[in-house]
Write a protein that binds this DNA or RNA. Sequence first.
DNA 1: ATTGAAAGCTCCGCGGG
DNA 2: CCCGCGGAGCTTTCAAT
Lengths: 151, 151
Amino acid sequence: MHMNPLDQRIVSCLVANARSSYAEVGKVVGLSAPAVKRRVDRLLDRGVLRGFTAVVDPEALGWGTEAFVEVHCRGNVSPSRIRARVEPLPEVVAAYTVTGAADAIVHLRAADIHQLETALERLRGLDIVDRTVSTVVLSRLLDRPPAAGGG
Amino acid sequence: MHMNPLDQRIVSCLVANARSSYAEVGKVVGLSAPAVKRRVDRLLDRGVLRGFTAVVDPEALGWGTEAFVEVHCRGNVSPSRIRARVEPLPEVVAAYTVTGAADAIVHLRAADIHQLETALERLRGLDIVDRTVSTVVLSRLLDRPPAAGGG
DNA sequence: ATTGAAAGCTCCGCGGG
DNA sequence: CCCGCGGAGCTTTCAAT
């Protein structure tokens, strides 16, 4: 899955502003608009680019409270089964299997502490879950898109 | 910080696809293209919408390895100072102040374990940092955009 | 990769609810 | 205040070279 430097710069532009026109991107990377579109289409096909989304202030949406939850499972549970269990919970923003004592880390986002507690109860109620260790976020210090040319 | 239902639906559309035309969004929400643009501009002004970005497969970019790092600081360090220190590190994707024993959680993303280790060393070398506890991600089970109408 | 042309979109001002 | 209308200018998306 290699990406040549030109593709990297195109992706960079679109990460910075997904609503740039192809012509605008072309001006930056030194290509014509049709050439840029062809490359973007190919990147979408290969799954390098997954799509384009708006970045929303979570506070404004009423999702101001978040937490990271270490999930400890009973016995051996496969990652796919963990995924299947946590995926239906709408407050789950992300989930990872991890090294260390915990089996997974679940990133929760809710409107307030109360809704967060409710989400936690549902999470803890899952049959695969033995216990959880929650860390509530007090403030988001930094939250940025990955740099495309950073590797 | 109110968002009327019309704005919510517009935001929803743009979260789903940030490259939709205003006309396309307008067709969904029942507005003309100029009306949609005016609302989007206002949402951008108010900071409800922070921008538009491409969603990239981290693997494809060569950022396949990530970790969550609990940062424990020496003495009392203000959130803004933590932010100022970790912000220059390019591997830092996000950072939060949190409840519990740790002062902050830092989300790192790197090309491989080696680069992750380097990033960790730099993080641990910061003057504010006393010690760190790292949790390396084995697999990303779930990673989804926040639902706009979910609150 | 570039050119040319048709279709579509954006973005401005204007008038009406 | 917010909406929809209309026109100028630009972008996208083909095709062909």
